[in-house]
Structures are given as structure tokens and as C-alpha cells.
Design a protein around this nucleic acid. Structure first.
Length: 143
DNA sequence: GCCAACGTTGGC
DNA sequence: GCCAACGTTGGC
């Protein structure tokens, strides 16, 4: 079981849209970066992830789950890009901002801090539980 | 709106 | 295979 962080801009794909997609989830399309693609290929059904809003919001707003493993991205003509299907699981009662993450010494090595441009990132088990706690989840979802 | 960081492309 | 030029992302 692994943990991930997926970035989106609210204008492109909002947390509301993700929640409306329900338990069946929706394709996480549009990733055109090899590192991000490889991370998606490493995802397994049932893995959890954070839903992070980049741009003006810059915060983790919710928990998602991988409901379908990597398969070809239907928005890609070249056949070289994949996507996974992702379903919303829970809101974070208190969104965790990028500033919160940067202010926490235990989170200073997060990819979000170290390589802010990578749109699909691995998250360590420790980072996972810290951010869940900061977000007001008494019991972080885990395997 | 600006700029730094990073990834990709293409000429050599 | 190297590196300069360019485009994109994302934080501020």
C-alpha cells in the first residue's frame, strides 16, 4: 500500500467535480510528464492519495482512492500517456495549505516542497499521517 | 504579472 | 551526447 499526492487546478478539475464523480471515480487525465506517468503506473488499486489544488488555492483539500490502475489516457492521441481512475473518499475537515506544509519541519522533504512542479507524487507513510492529522482527520485512512 | 525551476527539443 | 533555447508550471 502506497500513498500519493495528485495535483489539480480548480479551474481544470475541482474537488467538487471529483466528488460528483462519486465512488466510481473519474479518469485522472492530462498528465504529460514522464515522472508523473511512472508514478501513476506504480499505483495499485486501493492506494490512497491527497487531492491538492495548485494555483491560487495551494492546499490539500481531500482524500482520494485509486479505483483503476494505469491505462491509456483517452485524451491522448499518441498512445504514450496513461491515466488512473480516482474516486473521492473524504474531505479534509481543515484544508492543509502549502504554507502549513512548509512550516512543519517533518514535512520539509516532501516532494511537494522539494519538487513543486511534479504533478503526481509519492507520499511517505509518515507524511500521510501528519497531513491527515493537520487536516483534522482523527483516523487517517489506511490499508 | 513576474520569475525561478524544471523538462523538452533540436542543432551541432 | 551535449547544451542552448524554448515552453510550461506553479509559487509569490
Amino acid at each position: 500500500m502506497a500513498y500519493w499526492l495528485l495535483k489539480s487546478e480548480a479551474e481544470t478539475w475541482s474537488w467538487d467535480q471529483q466528488k460528483k464523480a462519486g465512488a466510481k471515480g473519474a479518469e485522472w487525465t492530462g498528465v504529460r510528464n514522464y515522472q508523473a506517468r511512472n508514478n501513476m503506473r506504480a499505483m495499485r488499486q486501493g492506494d490512497f492519495g491527497f487531492f491538492y489544488l495548485s494555483g491560487a488555492d495551494r492546499c490539500v483539500v481531500g482524500i482520494v482512492r485509486i479505483v483503476k490502475e494505469a491505462h491509456p489516457d483517452s485524451t491522448d492521441d499518441t498512445g504514450q500517456w496513461d491515466c488512473v481512475d480516482v474516486a473521492a473518499v473524504a474531505d479534509l475537515p481543515k484544508p492543509v495549505t502549502l504554507a502549513d506544509v512548509k512550516a512543519n519541519p517533518k514535512l520539509k522533504d516532501m516532494v511537494l516542497v522539494r519538487n513543486s512542479r511534479l504533478s503526481v507524487q509519492p507520499v511517505s507513510a509518515q507524511e500521510w499521517s501528519i497531513i491527515c492529522k493537520l487536516g483534522g482527520l482523527a483516523k487517517p485512512p489506511q490499508a
